[in-house]
Simulated scan of single mutants.
Amino acid sequence: MARLIGLLVAIAALALPQMARADNFDFYVLSLSWSPSWCAANDPDGSTAQCDGRRKYAFIAHGLWPQNERGWPEYCASREPERVPQSLASTYYDIIPSAGLAGYEWRKHGTCSGLSQRIYFETIRSAYRKVRLPPSIFDGRIARKLATDEIEALFVRANPGLTRDAIAVTCDRGQLSEIRICMSKSLGFRACEEVNNNACRARMVGVPALP
């Protein structure tokens, strides 16, 4: 019986890495969500601050996700509170449109970073600022149809050090959804095979204009 219990404990331990302790990850994925696509699919009436048109959101910071070479941790134990204070969330409304999104990203991903809430969101801003957006294409003024390969090439051209194996374009219902860029813990660009393998399979995607 003791051997059986020991075996069960060992098997359970093998299942724990994806529910890992904070800071037990290999790199970050910066997820840049194309806001016009999200709004068209989720809030066509413009009832939220992200979509009401008063602030022109193009790419928002969907999150900075701790990632492993295979899989990722989420909802890690943290000494920080689950709730992100409004006073903190509101200072990031220029790149994270709502306290709800900030709170969700903190609970699911930020808790696994090993950082405090404040430092985690500061790191998101630093990662966001590191990426140069190709302005002539992604200013959101007109709707476009672009090849996914062209989108990747535009980002690579605009960001020295970024390579095609460090970026993935995702799509939903034929529309550009997100640009996912892999970064080291020090926010240098780096390759990420699994993230790259989960990229959009469509050759062309729509890029809706800003509301």
Score class of each variant (00 low, 15 high):
Arg3Val: 09
Ile5Phe: 14
Ile5Pro: 02
Leu7Trp: 10
Val9Ile: 09
Ala10Trp: 08
Ala10Gln: 12
Ile11Tyr: 04
Ala12Cys: 05
Pro17Ile: 02
Gln18Thr: 14
Met19Lys: 12
Ala20Ile: 06
Arg21Leu: 11
Ala22Gly: 11
Tyr28Phe: 15
Val29Met: 10
Val29Glu: 02
Leu30Thr: 00
Ser35Gln: 14
Pro36Thr: 06
Pro36Asp: 01
Ser37Val: 03
Ala40Phe: 00
Ala40Leu: 11
Ala41Met: 12
Asn42Ile: 00
Asp43Lys: 08
Asp43Ala: 04
Ser47Gly: 11
Thr48Cys: 02
Gly53Leu: 01
Arg54Trp: 02
Tyr57Trp: 02
Ala58Leu: 11
Ala61Arg: 00
Leu64Thr: 04
Trp65Glu: 00
Pro66Gln: 10
Tyr75Arg: 07
Gln86Asp: 13
Ser87Met: 10
Leu88Ile: 15
Ala89Asp: 07
Thr91Ile: 06
Tyr92Gly: 05
Ile95His: 06
Ala99Asn: 12
Ala99Asp: 07
Ala99Tyr: 03
Ala99Gln: 14
Leu101Ser: 08
Gly103Gln: 10
Trp106Arg: 10
Trp106Val: 08
His109Met: 11
Gly110Pro: 02
Gly110Gln: 08
Gly110Cys: 05
Thr111Asn: 07
Cys112His: 10
Gly114Lys: 05
Leu115Met: 14
Leu115Asn: 02
Leu115Ile: 03
Ser116Leu: 03
Gln117Lys: 04
Arg118Leu: 13
Arg118Lys: 09
Ile119Cys: 06
Tyr120Ile: 03
Ile124Ala: 01
Arg125Val: 03
Ser126Glu: 14
Lys130Ile: 02
Arg132Gly: 13
Arg132Ala: 15
Leu133Tyr: 12
Leu133Asn: 09
Leu133Phe: 15
Leu133Val: 15
Leu133Ala: 13
Pro134Phe: 08
Pro135Gly: 09
Pro135Asn: 06
Ser136Gly: 13
Ile137Arg: 12
Phe138Ser: 12
Asp139Thr: 14
Arg141Cys: 01
Ile142Glu: 06
Ile142Trp: 00
Arg144Asn: 04
Arg144Thr: 05
Thr148Arg: 09
Ile151Asn: 00
Glu152Gln: 13
Ala153Arg: 15
Ala153Gln: 05
Val156Asp: 01
Arg157Tyr: 03
Arg157Ala: 14
Arg157His: 13
Ala158Phe: 10
Gly161Gln: 05
Leu162Cys: 02
Thr163Gly: 13
Ala168Gly: 00
Val169Met: 03
Glu178Ser: 07
Ile179Pro: 00
Ile179Asn: 01
Ile181Met: 09
Ile181Asn: 03
Cys182Val: 07
Cys182Asn: 09
Cys182Ile: 07
Met183Phe: 10
Lys185Thr: 07
Lys185Arg: 15
Ser186Arg: 05
Ser186Glu: 12
Arg190Tyr: 07
Arg190Pro: 06
Asn197Cys: 03
Asn197Val: 10
Ala199Phe: 08
Cys200Ala: 09
Arg201Phe: 02
Arg203Thr: 13
Pro208Thr: 10
